[in-house]
Design a protein around this nucleic acid. Structure first.
Length: 206
DNA sequence: TGCCAGGCCCTCTTTAGGGCCTT
Protein backbone atom coordinates (compact mmCIF):
# COMPACT_ATOMS: atom_id res chain seq x y z
CA UNK A 1 0.00 0.00 0.00
CA UNK A 2 1.48 3.30 -1.01
CA UNK A 3 2.07 6.25 1.21
CA UNK A 4 -0.97 8.00 -0.17
CA UNK A 5 -3.29 6.62 2.49
CA UNK A 6 -1.74 8.61 5.30
CA UNK A 7 -5.02 10.13 6.40
CA UNK A 8 -6.52 8.66 9.50
CA UNK A 9 -10.20 7.83 9.23
CA UNK A 10 -12.72 6.17 11.54
CA UNK A 11 -15.09 3.83 9.70
CA UNK A 12 -18.31 3.38 11.63
CA UNK A 13 -21.62 1.58 11.47
CA UNK A 14 -24.73 1.74 13.66
CA UNK A 15 -27.39 -0.85 14.26
CA UNK A 16 -30.56 0.86 15.38
CA UNK A 17 -34.19 0.26 16.35
CA UNK A 18 -35.33 1.71 13.02
CA UNK A 19 -34.66 4.22 10.30
CA UNK A 20 -35.00 7.60 11.93
CA UNK A 21 -34.07 9.20 15.24
CA UNK A 22 -36.64 11.88 14.35
CA UNK A 23 -39.38 9.32 14.96
CA UNK A 24 -37.89 8.01 18.19
CA UNK A 25 -35.47 5.40 16.94
CA UNK A 26 -32.29 4.80 18.94
CA UNK A 27 -28.93 3.18 18.40
CA UNK A 28 -28.49 -0.37 19.71
CA UNK A 29 -24.92 -1.10 18.56
CA UNK A 30 -21.94 0.86 17.33
CA UNK A 31 -18.98 -0.69 15.55
CA UNK A 32 -15.95 1.11 14.18
CA UNK A 33 -12.41 0.61 12.99
CA UNK A 34 -9.67 3.21 12.67
CA UNK A 35 -7.59 3.20 9.49
CA UNK A 36 -4.09 4.64 9.51
CA UNK A 37 -1.93 4.38 6.41
CA UNK A 38 -4.42 1.91 4.97
CA UNK A 39 -4.21 -0.41 7.96
CA UNK A 40 -6.75 -1.09 10.70
CA UNK A 41 -4.99 -0.01 13.88
CA UNK A 42 -7.82 -0.39 16.40
CA UNK A 43 -11.54 -1.01 16.70
CA UNK A 44 -14.58 -0.20 18.83
CA UNK A 45 -17.68 -2.35 19.33
CA UNK A 46 -20.44 -2.03 21.88
CA UNK A 47 -24.08 -2.99 22.24
CA UNK A 48 -26.18 -0.37 23.99
CA UNK A 49 -29.52 -0.45 25.75
CA UNK A 50 -31.88 1.97 24.00
CA UNK A 51 -34.45 1.98 26.79
CA UNK A 52 -37.09 0.51 24.50
CA UNK A 53 -37.80 -2.91 23.08
CA UNK A 54 -36.64 -3.62 19.55
CA UNK A 55 -39.20 -5.15 17.22
CA UNK A 56 -38.98 -8.62 15.72
CA UNK A 57 -37.85 -7.32 12.36
CA UNK A 58 -34.80 -5.68 13.90
CA UNK A 59 -34.06 -8.75 16.02
CA UNK A 60 -34.11 -10.88 12.89
CA UNK A 61 -32.32 -8.36 10.68
CA UNK A 62 -29.43 -7.73 13.06
CA UNK A 63 -29.40 -10.83 15.19
CA UNK A 64 -29.46 -8.51 18.20
CA UNK A 65 -32.16 -9.59 20.63
CA UNK A 66 -33.89 -7.78 23.44
CA UNK A 67 -32.24 -10.28 25.76
CA UNK A 68 -28.80 -9.25 24.50
CA UNK A 69 -29.61 -5.58 25.05
CA UNK A 70 -31.07 -6.01 28.53
CA UNK A 71 -27.66 -6.13 30.20
CA UNK A 72 -25.93 -3.70 27.83
CA UNK A 73 -24.79 -0.28 29.04
CA UNK A 74 -26.97 2.69 28.16
CA UNK A 75 -26.69 4.62 24.91
CA UNK A 76 -25.49 7.60 26.92
CA UNK A 77 -22.60 5.68 28.45
CA UNK A 78 -21.54 4.05 25.19
CA UNK A 79 -21.81 7.21 23.11
CA UNK A 80 -19.67 9.12 25.58
CA UNK A 81 -17.00 6.48 25.16
CA UNK A 82 -17.43 6.55 21.40
CA UNK A 83 -17.05 10.34 21.26
CA UNK A 84 -13.71 9.86 23.03
CA UNK A 85 -12.80 7.15 20.52
CA UNK A 86 -13.41 9.14 17.36
CA UNK A 87 -11.68 12.27 18.65
CA UNK A 88 -10.99 14.68 15.79
CA UNK A 89 -10.64 12.05 13.05
CA UNK A 90 -12.57 12.15 9.81
CA UNK A 91 -15.39 9.65 9.51
CA UNK A 92 -16.66 7.20 6.91
CA UNK A 93 -19.81 5.10 6.64
CA UNK A 94 -21.73 3.26 3.94
CA UNK A 95 -24.70 5.56 3.32
CA UNK A 96 -23.22 8.08 5.71
CA UNK A 97 -26.36 10.20 5.87
CA UNK A 98 -28.00 7.40 7.85
CA UNK A 99 -25.17 6.89 10.35
CA UNK A 100 -24.55 10.62 10.64
CA UNK A 101 -28.09 11.37 11.74
CA UNK A 102 -27.89 8.70 14.46
CA UNK A 103 -24.41 9.82 15.53
CA UNK A 104 -25.61 13.42 15.74
CA UNK A 105 -28.78 12.50 17.63
CA UNK A 106 -27.09 10.22 20.14
CA UNK A 107 -24.19 12.60 20.77
CA UNK A 108 -26.57 15.50 21.21
CA UNK A 109 -28.27 13.58 24.02
CA UNK A 110 -24.98 13.46 25.92
CA UNK A 111 -23.83 16.94 25.01
CA UNK A 112 -20.95 15.73 22.88
CA UNK A 113 -19.88 16.58 19.32
CA UNK A 114 -17.14 15.86 16.83
CA UNK A 115 -15.06 17.92 14.44
CA UNK A 116 -14.29 15.44 11.66
CA UNK A 117 -15.95 15.41 8.26
CA UNK A 118 -18.00 12.50 6.91
CA UNK A 119 -17.28 10.66 3.69
CA UNK A 120 -19.73 8.14 2.21
CA UNK A 121 -18.61 4.89 0.57
CA UNK A 122 -22.07 4.52 -1.02
CA UNK A 123 -21.83 7.82 -2.88
CA UNK A 124 -18.28 7.13 -4.03
CA UNK A 125 -19.02 3.56 -5.09
CA UNK A 126 -21.92 4.74 -7.24
CA UNK A 127 -19.43 6.89 -9.12
CA UNK A 128 -16.47 4.52 -9.24
CA UNK A 129 -18.30 1.18 -9.68
CA UNK A 130 -21.00 2.19 -12.13
CA UNK A 131 -21.26 -1.37 -13.44
CA UNK A 132 -21.97 -2.98 -10.07
CA UNK A 133 -25.34 -4.78 -9.86
CA UNK A 134 -26.29 -2.43 -7.04
CA UNK A 135 -24.46 -0.53 -4.33
CA UNK A 136 -25.50 -2.28 -1.14
CA UNK A 137 -22.53 -3.01 1.08
CA UNK A 138 -22.88 -6.79 0.78
CA UNK A 139 -23.16 -6.65 -2.99
CA UNK A 140 -20.07 -4.46 -3.34
CA UNK A 141 -18.06 -6.76 -1.08
CA UNK A 142 -18.91 -9.65 -3.41
CA UNK A 143 -18.44 -7.52 -6.54
CA UNK A 144 -14.91 -6.62 -5.46
CA UNK A 145 -14.20 -10.17 -4.29
CA UNK A 146 -13.40 -8.93 -0.80
CA UNK A 147 -12.88 -11.69 1.76
CA UNK A 148 -15.77 -11.67 4.21
CA UNK A 149 -16.23 -14.10 7.06
CA UNK A 150 -18.81 -12.77 9.49
CA UNK A 151 -22.33 -11.51 9.88
CA UNK A 152 -23.54 -8.58 7.82
CA UNK A 153 -25.83 -6.25 9.75
CA UNK A 154 -23.65 -6.39 12.82
CA UNK A 155 -21.94 -3.10 13.46
CA UNK A 156 -18.30 -4.13 13.77
CA UNK A 157 -18.41 -6.50 10.82
CA UNK A 158 -20.10 -3.96 8.58
CA UNK A 159 -17.56 -1.30 9.58
CA UNK A 160 -14.75 -3.76 8.80
CA UNK A 161 -16.26 -4.51 5.39
CA UNK A 162 -16.76 -0.80 4.71
CA UNK A 163 -13.12 -0.19 5.56
CA UNK A 164 -11.99 -2.91 3.15
CA UNK A 165 -14.27 -1.52 0.46
CA UNK A 166 -12.86 1.97 1.07
CA UNK A 167 -9.29 0.75 0.58
CA UNK A 168 -10.36 -1.07 -2.58
CA UNK A 169 -11.94 2.12 -3.92
CA UNK A 170 -8.79 4.14 -3.22
CA UNK A 171 -6.59 1.47 -4.75
CA UNK A 172 -8.75 1.15 -7.87
CA UNK A 173 -8.72 4.91 -8.47
CA UNK A 174 -4.98 5.05 -7.98
CA UNK A 175 -4.38 2.18 -10.37
CA UNK A 176 -6.81 3.17 -13.09
CA UNK A 177 -5.90 6.84 -13.18
CA UNK A 178 -2.29 6.58 -11.98
CA UNK A 179 -3.01 9.13 -9.30
CA UNK A 180 -0.38 9.28 -6.62
CA UNK A 181 -2.44 10.76 -3.84
CA UNK A 182 -6.02 9.62 -3.40
CA UNK A 183 -6.94 11.13 -0.08
CA UNK A 184 -10.02 12.09 1.87
CA UNK A 185 -10.32 15.46 0.14
CA UNK A 186 -10.22 13.92 -3.34
CA UNK A 187 -12.96 11.49 -2.36
CA UNK A 188 -15.05 14.37 -1.05
CA UNK A 189 -14.50 16.14 -4.36
CA UNK A 190 -15.59 13.08 -6.33
CA UNK A 191 -18.71 12.82 -4.20
CA UNK A 192 -19.69 16.32 -5.24
CA UNK A 193 -19.47 15.51 -8.95
CA UNK A 194 -22.15 13.86 -11.05
CA UNK A 195 -21.49 10.28 -12.13
CA UNK A 196 -20.95 11.43 -15.70
CA UNK A 197 -18.21 13.87 -14.71
CA UNK A 198 -16.13 11.67 -12.42
CA UNK A 199 -14.14 9.88 -15.12
CA UNK A 200 -13.25 13.10 -16.90
CA UNK A 201 -12.23 14.76 -13.67
CA UNK A 202 -9.97 11.91 -12.62
CA UNK A 203 -8.35 11.85 -16.07
CA UNK A 204 -7.77 15.59 -15.84
CA UNK A 205 -5.74 15.29 -12.64
CA UNK A 206 -3.90 12.06 -13.41
C1' DT B 1 -57.62 5.22 12.39
C1' DG B 2 -53.84 6.75 10.11
C1' DC B 3 -49.73 8.40 10.31
C1' DC B 4 -45.05 6.10 9.80
C1' DA B 5 -37.22 8.95 7.09
C1' DG B 6 -34.52 11.36 4.30
C1' DG B 7 -30.65 12.40 1.25
C1' DC B 8 -29.06 11.24 -3.22
C1' DC B 9 -29.80 10.78 -8.03
C1' DC B 10 -31.99 9.78 -12.40
C1' DT B 11 -35.41 11.16 -15.76
C1' DC B 12 -40.65 10.49 -19.12
C1' DT B 13 -36.95 16.91 -14.73
C1' DT B 14 -36.57 21.72 -12.51
C1' DT B 15 -44.21 24.13 -10.91
C1' DA B 16 -42.05 16.15 -9.83
C1' DG B 17 -41.93 11.47 -9.06
C1' DG B 18 -39.82 7.46 -7.76
C1' DG B 19 -35.92 4.06 -6.92
C1' DC B 20 -31.88 3.31 -4.11
C1' DC B 21 -29.60 2.77 0.38
C1' DT B 22 -29.26 2.68 5.49
C1' DT B 23 -32.12 -0.11 10.27
Amino acid sequence: MLNRLANTIVVLDFETTGLSPATGDRAIEIGAVRLQNGVVVDSFQQLMNPGQRVNSFIEQYTGISNEMLADAPSCEQVMNDFADYIGDDNLLAHNASFDKKFLDAELQRVGRSYSGQFACSLLVSRRVYQDAPNHRLGTLVKYKDIASDGDFHRALFDSQMTAKLWLEILSDIETKYQIEQVDFNLIKKLSSLSKAKVDGYLRSIS
